[in-house]
Every structure is written in C-alpha cells, then in structure tokens.
Nucleic acid binder design. Sequence first.
RNA 1: GGCGCCAUCGCCAAGUGGUAAGGCCGGAGCCUGCAAAGCUUCUAUCCCCAGUUCAAAUCUGGGUGGCGCCUCCA
Length: 466
Amino acid sequence: MVIYDSVAKEKRRFVPQHGNDVTLYVCGPTVYDDAHLGHAKSALVFDLLSRVLRANGYHVTYARNITDIDDKIIHKAKERHVSIGEITTTYIEAYHHDMAALGIARPNLEPRATESIEAMIIMIEQLLANNHAYAIENGDIYFDTSSDHRYLTLSGQLQDADARRQRVESSHLKRHQSDFALWKAVHDESIAFEAPFGRGRPGWHLECSAMIEKHLARDGAYAIDIHGGGADLLFPHHENEAAQTRCATNHELAAYWMHNGFVTIEGEKMSKSLGNSFFIKDALKVYQGEVLRFYLLSTHYRANFNFNETDLLASKKRLDKLYRLKKRLFGLKAIAMVTPFQTQLLDALNDDLNVSKALALIDEMIVLSNEKLDINAKDKVAKKEALANIETIATLLGFGTNNPFNYFQHGIDTATRQTVEALIAQRNDAKRAKDFATSDALRDTILALGISLMDTPEGTFWERND
RNA sequence: GGCGCCAUCGCCAAGUGGUAAGGCCGGAGCCUGCAAAGCUUCUAUCCCCAGUUCAAAUCUGGGUGGCGCCUCCA
C-alpha cells in the first residue's frame, strides 16, 4: 500500500510499526450542531481507508474522537436553556444516524473528551514537569512553543512572529504568540473539571494527544501509525498535537499523516459565517445515503470537492449501472471466489485510495458482465463472477449494498406505489389486447408520476426517475 | 504579508518522463409493438511562455487564473 503523507509531501509505502497491527486516529466532530458534508467527506475517506487496510490483511484499530466539551457547546446549551449533556447527546445521535445513512462503519473507538479528562491531566502534568508548559496568573496553562525545537516542522509554517502578530489576537499573559492553552481556568460556576492545577476546562488540541496516549499508543518511535483529519487541521491543530505528544512523551505522534480536501459549495468553503453549510440530514431528504456516499467518494480524497447537484446526478447514474447489473443477478447467492477484477480493484485502492481508477475498473467490469449476459442470459460463470465482484465492491467501497429494486424505488410512498402498480396492471391488459394506444397513454400517465417503466421478459418493472 | 494546493474533452475526473483511463451529456447504430434498460460506435494533446530531454500533460523557471491555511473549523 502506498499513502500520501501530507507532512513528507509525497507518497510513501505504508509499513506499520508493529507487524500486522495498524493504529488509525482521526479527528472527529465537535458536537454542537448537525454534521455537514465536510464531516461526511472526512468520515467517508477514513472509512474507506480502514476498509482498504483491512482488505490488505491488517488488523486495524480505528479511533475517531468526539469533542463533547467546548465553548460552542456551552454557548448553545445556554442559548437553549438545556444542559450540555442534552446538546451533546442530541448531536452525537444525529452524527451517528447521518454517518450510518452514508454506510460508514463505526470506528472501533469513539473516545469522548469528557471521558478523557484524566488522560489530559496526566499529559499536562508531564508537560509542566518537563518545563514545556507554564501557568499564568489567572490559572490558565499554556504550552510553551519555544521549548519545542521541532515546533512548526509538521506544517512547515515557519513564519516569523511579526507576521503572526498581525492575525492572532494578542494575549499579553502568554510568553509567545504561538503558545496555546492546555487548560483554561474556570473561576465561576460554569462547567469545569477538577485538576491538581486548578478547576478548569481542557484546551481543544490536548484531547487528541491525550486520547491517543490513553487508547492507542504503543512503544516505538511513533505513538500511532496514521493520523487523519481535514486539511484545515494541519495547522495549528495537528502541529500542536504533535508538539504536545513529543514533549510529554518520548515519541512522535504519528508515522503517517493524511489530510482530506474540502467540500465546497459554489466554490466556497462551507462556514457558519458564509451561511452556506450543507447538512447531511438535508441532503438525505433528497438523495439516498448511498448516492451521497458514491458522489462524495468519487473524487480523490486530497482534492477539493465542489458539491453540486449536476455532478451528483451524474454519479447517481453511474451507481445506477452497478445496481442494474445487480438486478440482473437478483435471487442468486454469491459464492466466494477470486477474480482478476478483485485484485485490480484492491491494487487501485492501494495506490493512495485511487478511487477514480477503481470506479473505471468497476465500469469496465459492469460493461463486460452485461455483454456476457446479453450474449447468454444464463451464463452461469459470468453470473457467479459478477456477483463475487459486486460483493468485493460492497466490502471495499460500500457501494451496491442494497436490494436493487428498493434502490430504484427509493422514497416512493405507499399510495404512489399502489397507484403505479394498478396502472401497470391496466397497461398490461391493454398490451395483451394489442391496444398500444391505451398502453402508451398509460405509460405517459405513469411517467407523469415520476416513474419509468421497463418491459422485460420477466414482466414490467418500474423505477423512480430523477 | 507568510505557508501550501490546484489548472487535463461541454461537465465531473484518472494519469506525474515514453507518446491522453473512466463517467455524465451529445451524435449514429443494434435490440424493442413503441420505449426504458443493455450493447456497439464517434468526440481532447493536457492554462500561457521559455527551458531540460532522444522523448513532457508529466521535470525546471517565469507568467496568468482558482482555492485553502495562518482565528473556531472535517
């Protein structure tokens, strides 16, 4: 397997530190609002990565954190006059629901910040003991970036202090502009945690380093094999995580760093300030989760992704073809077998998750299978192979996992369904009577309901139009 | 201002030194009572300029144009 390491800025052959075991940590969401398409992209990319790693025979421990204590959460709880727990429970459930709809498997571990306070306290104490952190008058504890000789080598920022001063809000109490809070002292009645160095709340960057130490880290040069997240996290979040870990422990944080590109809408990054966030739950009202999965995964993970409906529908048509083939194979049991296609598919994905190449292989496989079945509809070998190939696609990429008939009739309500089926029965009567004028008129009626008909030797099937 | 990414057919998108994958859309055909689906077939020399090389979309330099990070952020 080859992975693009966004710190080395080149593709590197992937070699785990500990034999067959792979540790993967990905920065998850802060649960103060619904998940948007950007969250989906990140979760999808690393879901795919974990699938591909496993397909290569690795034993993967995949952790994705949940930040459930944060100023934005507290703010929202106050705004709604509810507890923080109610906010986080609501959005954690929503997150899980949305991710499941996209066919994203749950990571092995989903550590929460509030359950990792002890680990964070331990790390702060290590940093204080090593003189990598200091407390200021009000009780806040900062990481001393000047004490880390490798600071900024991860992101390659290396900017001078004057440049940063322009942008960063100055805190006269910090020793250096780039120093960041490990612990924010709390003196009032608002939510806080007890710590030897005073009541307070953890800084954001700390939790990932602490959780990694607590749940994944093993002896060696690096705490874990792969650390992932959105491209916006490289600096300062991952830079700071890396600094904390190397200064508190005797190892670097991750052997490989992977960052996924952004989902943009109309060419602009989604953000609160622009008001252009596109929530997964809203997209799911219109499109099937699997179509969204296919679309969001169809562009290489490192490239920026400009979401638009035209491209989404083009992706849907591409996925449709996989399901049309599955429809032709309906009722047959898949038999485990090895085909050249499967090897090629894994090879493509092993090249830094080259999904475009994988999709091209899938298209070619579909055409070839259809061709064989057009020549001989009872070609058993072709059917067996095609089924096995579809199984592999489902396992590796999560595409084609549904019942093909349900897929094409997605979102049709019972009333419409009954109407359509009654009209089809009428039309079949007309067809039997060779009354093609009536039968064509009925098809137009059905078409007006958004339904396409397909006459086949096995009967008339219907599909929803998009 | 600093750091970084990107620019391939109408649209989406691989390929990163050896002579342009795939999909969508569109044209033609086969099949079909007519359709749909499926199949066959047709459509690019890679933003511009200069350089390196036997050979460049692919490397180097310079332009132009997008985008991201530097502040919470997937």
